[in-house]
């Protein structure tokens, strides 16, 4: 995503948020008027474990520069154990992406509860900054999807 005037690189961040905690946390950060970058596009999922590894890859394909997955804190998943499975899956997936030479700082998992509006905003600010430093995603993009 390009911003008009100073042409500073603005990363596109996709945030998968589980319905029961993190999405509510994002909502809270909004109602509390906390700032987080407009670069972050939220996709709501029923539970963090709904996120198939393919979703993460697809997000990169369609132009994301960073993908973050947020769910309830371990032990607090609405479906009891979904996020424990997420944790194993994403650890292995991120490790594989790293193994293929895809910058590991483009991916992250963060646990954000419904009460943690401030944490949500802080996480998104920090993650966006980190991805901005890496520059545009070039190693896992689909050229046909690149915005001109």
């Amino acid at each position: 995503m390009q911003v008009n005037d100073n042409k500073e690189f603005q990363p596109l961040i996709v945030a998968f948020c589980c319905n029961w905690c993190s999405y509510a946390g994002a909502d809270l950060s909004g109602t509390n008027r906390l700032n987080y970058p407009t670069n972050v596009k939220i996709i709501r999922v029923p539970c963090s474990c709904r996120v198939n590894p393919m979703f993460i890859l697809r997000a990169f394909q369609r132009g994301a520069d960073g993908v973050i997955l947020c769910g309830c804190h371990p032990g607090d998943c609405h479906y009891t154990s979904g996020n424990y499975f997420t944790r194993r899956r994403m650890t292995l997936l991120f490790s594989m992406l790293d193994f293929l030479g895809i910058e590991r700082d483009r991916t992250r998992v963060e646990w954000v509860s419904a009460a943690e509006g401030a944490k949500f905003a802080a996480t998104m600010n920090e993650f966006t900054e980190a991805v901005k430093k890496l520059g545009p995603n070039r190693r896992l993009e689909d050229l046909r999807c690149r915005k001109q």
Partner: peptide, 19 residues
């Protein structure tokens, strides 16, 4: 199978970033 299983003490995904 390891991916059909978990423990509450599993490491966080950030372990990959700390390498």
């Amino acid at each position: 199978a390891p991916l059909n299983d978990y423990t509450t003490e599993d490491c966080e995904a950030s372990i990959v970033h700390e390498r």
